[in-house]
Design a protein around this nucleic acid. Structure first.
Length: 608
DNA sequence: AGACTCACG
DNA sequence: ACGTACGTGAGTCTC
């Protein structure tokens, strides 16, 4: 049997040579050499993917063309490298450095001087595409191939665990990746400059990397007993609801299957399907469609209740306790920096950005996110940040006026549109104004407004017409944005973050219209994301001085959550609010509201 | 793997 | 005439 490395002729060998620092003498001389560098690529190798459970195997380095070094790691070797890795003045390059920061942190090293991440550079150049992994970049940017992990480990039954691969082979694999990253930093740096993205990269995205690493490492505590208690209760409730549904349908079926449900509702029970939405396979049974059928059959309400409960049970009550890290007793999400098309973060394993806010059971889930004894959670969220941004970007006189008045923006909007006093604004009028204020950042049409505000189509049309007569600046801004998207093929945020929109010229109307809505939304959503990222960087830099025990633990797009010692609450809340509100100057004030509580579900406003 | 549904901002 | 709001991640079914 050939060793996996016999495949090497299939791969372009990037590297001229590599050195293995596998003795005390070699390591000492290598460390001295490393300490003389202005910058280097590092690439940690581990036994798995989760930085909080895996073991460090080694680190490869590259700081010159055609040469790389591998240090197999034991504790003593790590300590030898510590001062260089922690030296702020030596720039660190890498691919997905958040991972390296976390791995090294677990090994007692505070990686500093993080300066260039090729994954993030690739993302800024091409946001909204998922492939930013090293192998993809080497293929597309360098037109070369590096050894895939499979060549090293084998696959299927003969797969060798990473920790058992001969160090010579592993060193080559790792060094090749370090060198590829070295080449990529040089190529991508130029591309960033050409696209005017260098400042966004160095002032926002790169400084954010260690901030996110810190948040992930901090994690959040979860009361898994509470979740388990309710998952049992919900299970019993679900059995009852299912029984009732089966009785009404006069048959048992799989309630979790939209196909079977559709067949029962529309063929067996013959519920009218007029005006219902369609999916690719037939009539939709989504909640929004079923809601229209509530008066047609009592089974509908039961199905909606079943859906709500199963969703919450499987996605939250059952899933979250499984993700508690046994070492820390906390849940450590991943904040992904290279996923979204607009510049927002995303969260996964678990997603802590879609924890329920509504409903009784939803609230229970939030209540299970707790602060340890002696501490509390502080939540600070931007108030109407996207609307403030569109007012500012559009320089809309009337909307800026409305925000400067400091009153409720939806009420203000209703007043301006109908020429009435705040006292005369009914809850219904306010709700309609809120919907359109909200929808304007999405490029909403009359139909969408009618649907979500629950008003007739002709009324929605009149409403939109009036809206743009009052907010002319917004109207002009939307037109200008679409025009610019067509002219340049991309749109950008206040800080120059780009989103390319190739479909803006599509001959297919639907695609073009969709691209236009994306063009409208991205500068708004993206600028909000930029501002939040800047705030997070500013807060992370100063929080350790103001309150070393306090931790920033979550970001939910317009909200930041902190875990803070009870005595320090006011001090930290005041600092965070001030930082978030003043990190950027817009044409309107930016406002952030503070809440405090023992858990994420029962928080009260904090006046400062 | 893709479709559907639904949780969030 | 036509589709009809932006951005995500996850659980489940179906093929």
């Amino acid at each position: 049997m050939n060793s996996p490395l016999s495949h090497k002729e299939n791969y372009f060998n990037l590297m001229l040579n590599y050195e293995l620092a596998d003795s005390r003498e070699k390591l000492n001389s290598f460390t001295k050499k490393l300490a003389r560098q202005r910058a280097f690529v590092l690439n940690t190798e581990t036994t798995g993917l989760d930085p909080f459970t895996i073991k460090l195997l080694g680190i490869s380095f590259c700081f010159e063309d055609g040469k790389a070094y591998y240090v197999p790691c034991l504790k003593s070797e790590i300590s030898n490298l510590k001062s260089v890795l922690e030296n702020l003045k030596i720039e660190k390059f890498g691919h997905n450095l958040k991972y390296d920061i976390e791995v090294l942190r677990e090994n007692g090293i505070n990686l500093s001087g993080v300066a260039f991440d090729t994954m993030i550079a690739s993302y800024l150049l091409n946001p909204g595409t998922r492939a930013h992994d090293l192998d993809f970049l080497v293929t597309t940017e360098l037109k070369k191939k590096i050894m895939p992990l499979e060549a090293l480990m084998g696959k299927g039954k003969t797969k060798i665990p990473l920790g058992q691969i001969p160090v010579q082979n592993f060193a080559r694999y790792s060094c090749e990746r370090a060198e590829a990253t070295w080449w990529l930093t040089q190529k991508l740096k130029l591309e960033l400059q050409k696209a005017n993205l260098s400042k966004l990269f160095s002032k926002i995205e790169m400084p954010l990397v260690p901030v996110l690493a810190g948040m992930e490492a901090a994690g959040i505590q979860i009361d898994s007993n509470l979740l388990k208690k309710y998952s049992g209760r919900v299970q019993k409730q679900l059995s009852k609801i299912s029984e009732q549904i089966f009785k009404m349908a006069k048959t048992k079926f799989n309630l979790d299957s939209p196909i079977q449900l559709r067949q029962i509702l529309f063929e067996k029970l013959k519920i009218k399907t007029d005006g219902l939405g369609w999916g690719k396979t037939g009539i939709s049974t989504a909640a929004g469609e079923l809601l229209k059928l509530r008066s047609a059959h009592p089974i509908i309400d039961l199905i909606l209740e079943y859906r709500e409960l199963t969703k919450l049970r499987s996605t939250y009550l059952l899933a979250l306790p499984k993700l508690i890290n046994p070492k820390t007793g906390r849940v450590h999400t991943s904040f992904n920096q290279t996923i979204t098309a607009t510049g927002r973060l995303s969260s996964s394993n678990p997603n802590l950005q879609n924890i329920p806010t509504r409903g009784d059971l939803g609230k229970i889930v939030r209540i299970a996110f707790v602060a340890p004894p002696g501490t509390k959670l502080i939540s600070v969220d931007y108030a109407h940040i996207e609307l403030r941004i569109i007012a500012s970007l559009a320089n809309d006189k009337k909307m800026i006026e409305a925000f400067r008045a400091g009153e409720d923006i939806h009420t203000e909007t209703a007043c301006k549109i109908w020429g009435i006093k705040p006292k005369e604004v009914t809850p219904e009028i306010r709700r309609a104004a809120k919907t359109i204020n909200f929808g304007v950042t999405y490029g909403m049409g009359a139909r969408g407004l009618a649907e979500s505000a629950g008003i007739p189509l002709d009324e929605a049309q009149k409403f939109i017409k009036k809206y743009f007569e009052i907010y002319q600046g917004i109207k002009n801004f939307l037109e200008k944005t679409k025009f610019s998207a067509k002219k340049f093929g991309y749109v950008e945020t206040l800080f120059g973050r780009r989103r390319y929109l190739p479909e803006i010229d599509s001959p297919i109307r639907q695609f073009q219209a969709q691209a236009e809505r994306m063009a409208i939304n991205m500068p708004v959503q993206g600028t909000a994301a930029d501002i939040m990222k800047l705030a997070m960087i500013k807060i992370a830099q100063n929080l350790s001085k103001i309150s070393p025990s306090s931790k920033m633990i979550l970001q939910v797009h317009d909200e930041l959550v902190f875990e803070v010692q009870e005595k320090e609450i006011r001090k930290v809340a005041k600092f965070v609010k001030e930082a978030m509100e003043n990190v950027v100057k817009l044409r309107v004030p930016i406002v952030a509201d503070v809440e405090v509580g023992e858990n994420w579900g029962e928080m009260v406003k904090l006046k400062l």
